[in-house]
């Protein structure tokens, strides 16, 4: 790692002020995305602002027809929460399949969304449920939030505080894990809430998480795997690497979407 300074702001406001003064500073939450990247010297922050101990940044509560989860909430807490299991079991299941047990003890919801790794699971849930990202300055809908590979709508001095997930009538997530890393080669989150039908894909797109409008349109009549039987998406825009070609990933999107629909 390159050298950096370490600070532990006491509040979100203080962290935001420190970010505003030092654009090269980075927020440290669980550190399970940032520290590996820093070890590879792919990131060179001047300062790490550890928000891991700020009170009120973690927690899970149901507010009306939404689940509101603090940005600092660890994956294990979401996976084990009875509130999440009752209200949005697909989200609890997704959190319980991120990384491995020790990783889930440290990694956070806000960290995953702020990093927006193209293979991460949480972006699929946020986009697939139409979540709202609540930051230190505003509310951003998931549709406006994800901007590409590791890119989000967050401004340099903006911190995710919590995320509001609307409760879906039906929802499920299916991922095809890379057998070595366990990361989603392709992961598909499907949901139905009234007339809002969403199919969000992680792992496959060369610009990160995306929605499959053609599938969503076809699912309007009936939210079932049959409705998208035989449908596929074009390989254009899919990522292609040693782990899988663009054509393979495009094919998997259809397979995973049908599996998720069968489970929802």
């Amino acid at each position: 790692m390159y050298e950096f300074k370490y600070a532990r702001p006491n509040s979100v406001r203080q962290a935001v002020n420190m970010l505003a003064k030092d654009p090269e500073a980075k927020i440290l939450a669980g550190g399970h995305s940032l520290l590996p990247v820093m070890k590879l010297r792919l990131a060179k922050p001047t300062q790490l602002l550890d928000i891991g101990r700020i009170e009120g940044l973690s927690g899970i509560e149901q507010k009306g027809r939404s689940l509101v989860i603090g940005a600092g909430t660890r994956h294990v807490e979401v996976a084990n929460s009875q509130v999440v299991k009752d209200a949005l079991p697909a989200l609890a299941a997704l959190a319980g399949e991120i990384g491995d047990p020790a990783v889930r003890h440290r990694g956070t919801l806000g960290g995953s969304l702020a990093n927006n790794d193209p293979n991460a699971d949480y972006p699929a849930a946020a986009l697939g449920l139409g979540a709202t990202i609540i930051t230190s300055k505003r509310r951003i809908t998931a549709d406006d939030y994800f901007k590409g590979l590791f890119e989000t709508a967050l401004e340099p001095d903006e911190i995710i505080v919590k995320v509001s997930f609307p409760l879906a009538k039906k929802a499920a997530y299916e991922k095809f894990k890379h057998p070595a890393s366990g990361f989603a080669l392709v992961g598909v989150f499907v949901s139905k809430r009234g007339s809002d039908i969403r199919v969000a894909v992680t792992g496959a797109g060369s610009s990160g998480v995306f929605r499959v409008k053609s599938f969503e349109e076809a699912l309007k009549k009936r939210f079932s795997p049959k409705s998208i039987e035989g449908m596929s998406i074009p390989a254009d825009g899919m990522s292609s690497d040693i782990h899988g070609s663009a054509e393979y990933r495009a094919h998997l999107v259809g397979v995973m979407a049908r599996r998720a629909l069968a489970k929802a």
Binding site: Y6, L28, G31, H32, L35, P36, K39, L48, D50, G52, G99, D100, P101, A102, V103, H105, R106, S181
Partner: peptide, 27 residues
């Protein structure tokens, strides 16, 4: 591995298993 995959570095921090290669001493 030094990349939080292999688990040879697992210790308990405040009673919970963590990968100590992906945790700063300061954390």
């Amino acid at each position: 591995c030094d990349t939080s995959q292999c688990g040879a570095c697992v210790v308990h921090l405040n009673g919970i298993a963590v990968k100590s290669c992906t945790t700063l001493a300061l954390q």
